[in-house]
Write a protein that binds this DNA or RNA. Structure first.
Lengths: 398, 398
DNA sequence: ATTTTTTACTCAACTAACTTGAATTAAATA
DNA sequence: TATTTAATTCAAGTTAGTTGAGTAAAAAAT
């Protein structure tokens, strides 16, 4: 009859309160420090309601006062802001051969991070390894486990029923047949969110990055392949089965390079780390021992420079497309690739001028670089947890 | 400080009630007829709360009883359904040279529709013309104006601050400088929504078309140009400035046909009515007096058949892209173009097989034809009004 | 045929959380 | 020093939800 996971549920006093808490927290996140009256005006709640909620939040250690605002007439407002140490969240990125763990405080600041080899990324080995990793992360950081809001696990998609997995070098098998979230929740003994890297990166950028005031933007994520995270109306977009944003397999050149997915000319075969290495290999020139894309770029390696040109061309096409389809406030580029490489790509972009995005009154540039570097995905996982406790949502069955 | 139009607002008793009314209505829409206990279980509200809400809705004439459910144990449930004549909504599509008006009852059924010439589509002429048109629509249909929920005005985008208007033959100037919604609301004396054709079509398809049970799907709309309407999580996606879905100007052939927008190879120059006429003209063959695309198709006109091939090729690319980016449950094709033409296009599609959309357990086909034909946009306008009174939303400033 | 079980629904009392209005505090300005 | 302005608190009032007891009506069991 009624499918699980569908349908919006009704509201009552308790759910209203929980919604309002989030509304207040979300406002403070974006405008801190802020006083009660200011929050009241902006959140559509009476001062008294805000006052009660703030008292609770302060009692829980999530908010704290930071003096008074002065200079204006009237009684100076007591200013509130996040208490960075009031709570924390963990993010873990699981890669084919390693895990990356990040611990964020409530303000979205990175307190601790660590990368660890993971020779066997099957669920049987990975889940205990993650459990151990986060235990040590909590211990090293000296936090109290009772302030842990949850853990965000980041894995490359696509997930679930589709059974498909494009990214040639994605996480190995064994994950399809289990309920990943439930398994982790049992093992870690805290709330868990599972998300793909691009979406996590987008959320991270909104929580504490370049897009903190934006409710509509896109994040193009350079991972093993290429992913797109979309924030629309302040929320991440997941699609019918959570596989939205497969931008890597959009065809930007008809009959172009062959892609492991079976098609030809996928964006990912040009503009991704995978694509870069393939290009360099094909170019055949001498490559220094232990090179990285960044080092080649700094050395002005000709093949590398040529790749940047080619990749930027394809990216420009993709960005134009994303602008036309999503009408974002900006498009952010980032992920597991060095900042200088992203900057070089951005410098070479040639975006279509005849676009709704090419409007004169822009506040943000059409394209920006992400701000959290290679840890983006792990940070994004933790950011999603914080985001969830902070951002008001339509309540949905589960 | 805080931008208008942004931010989620807090909840209180009154807003909870309004939310819950919509939750109940939305459930009844999708599952009618339904009893109070059943609604209570599915909406996460107590029976008593549902009971009170239903009493109100019945009092307002929006719901009505339709006998008892029998066959099961226990006291038979009193079944409720929409009272089709309890309210109605109007939709008006404004075209460069005409207006189309549709009147829907609460069940989404078309009660009345009418097309009227509009020699001058400037706001000064069009607004009074629309006012007159809807007055006569209400009169002819014999409805009581107090049951009018509102009017949805459908115009080709893009709207607003961008100032840009791609579609070569879109509505003429004069609309950029005014607050369209406010002007219409003043003239029509009822709530007004302004929306683009593709989004309106998508909403219409969900309210009373092929997608009534879907919360994630895309609608490719053949208007003057080509638009994309996206429903994600049950809501239409508008982007930062309401211009999301400009699929017509996605480039499907590098250095292809010139487009009025300044770029080359836009999808719209191939797969749209505009594109079809241009193709036929260029092909140069004899075209019968007073031909239409449908008549050419039925006559197996070679140029027309060739256009279908070419357009289907480009559409396939676009649909693949849309599937990758939005992960919809299905993609619907429709709009101001004859059903047979759409069917011919669908028959010739060659969709990428290596796609997350190519999953075995599909309930809906990857591509479907829309069900409301040429009136789609006008019906969509009215559908948006009904949708808004029925569908629970995150409350947002305005 | 009667009793039991099951389910739907109503009545009345209760409660959580928001709103309202009056009072208090504290700074800027007159 | 008095007045104005703005932030905040206190206390009472309101809305709309929940809870628990009781009634109604059909199917199943005795």
């Amino acid at each position: 009859m009624v499918e699980e996971g569908t349908g919006v549920i009704g509201s009552n006093a308790g759910r209203s309160r929980s919604h309002n808490r989030r509304v207040v927290l979300d406002f403070v996140r974006a405008h801190e420090p802020a006083g009660r009256a200011e929050i009241s005006r902006s959140c559509g709640l009476s001062i008294q309601a805000v006052s009660n909620i703030i008292d609770t939040l302060e009692g829980e250690g999530l908010l704290r006062t930071v003096g008074h605002r002065s200079g204006m007439r009237g009684k100076p407002a007591l200013q509130y802001q996040f208490n960075p140490d009031g709570a924390f969240a963990l993010g873990v990125e699981i890669l084919p051969d390693a895990m990356v763990c990040a611990l964020l405080n409530l303000s979205g600041k990175r307190i601790f991070s660590r990368r660890k080899k993971l020779p066997d990324a099957s669920p049987e080995k990975a889940i205990p390894a993650v459990t151990k990793l986060i235990a040590s992360a909590i211990e090293v950081s000296g936090r109290d486990r009772k302030n842990l809001l949850g853990t965000g696990i980041v894995m490359p998609g696509p997930f679930g029923k589709s059974g498909l997995s494009f990214s040639g070098a994605a996480v190995p098998g064994g994950w399809e047949s289990i309920d990943i979230r439930q398994e982790f929740e049992k093992a870690l003994n805290c709330p868990v969110i599972i998300e793909n890297d691009a979406t996590a990166a987008a959320v991270s950028e909104r929580l504490a990055g370049a897009a903190s005031e934006l409710n509509n933007f896109c994040f193009i994520y350079f991972g093993t392949g290429l992913g797109l995270g979309v924030i629309a109306g302040g929320h991440s977009q997941r699609g019918a089965l959570g596989n939205a944003g497969e931008i890597g397999h959009i065809i930007t050149k008809a009959n172009g390079l062959p892609c492991p997915c079976g098609n030809f000319g996928c964006l990912e075969t040009y503009a991704s780390r995978m694509g870069a290495f393939a290009f360099l290999e094909k170019a055949g020139g001498e490559l220094p021992e232990g090179f990285t894309l960044a080092s080649l770029l700094e050395a002005q390696n000709p093949a590398m420079l040529e790749w940047v040109e080619v990749a930027a061309l394809h990216l420009s096409q993709a960005i134009g497309m994303v602008e036309n389809l999503f009408d974002p406030e900006t498009v952010i580029l980032g992920g597991a690739i060095a900042d200088v490489v992203i900057d070089a790509l951005i410098a070479k972009l040639d975006l279509p001028t005849g676009s709704i995005a090419n409007r004169p009154a822009r506040i943000y540039p059409r394209v920006m670089r992400g701000s959290s570097g290679r840890l983006t995905a792990a940070i994004g996982g933790a950011a999603m947890i914080i985001h969830r406790t902070i951002t008001p949502t339509v309540t949905v069955f589960h």
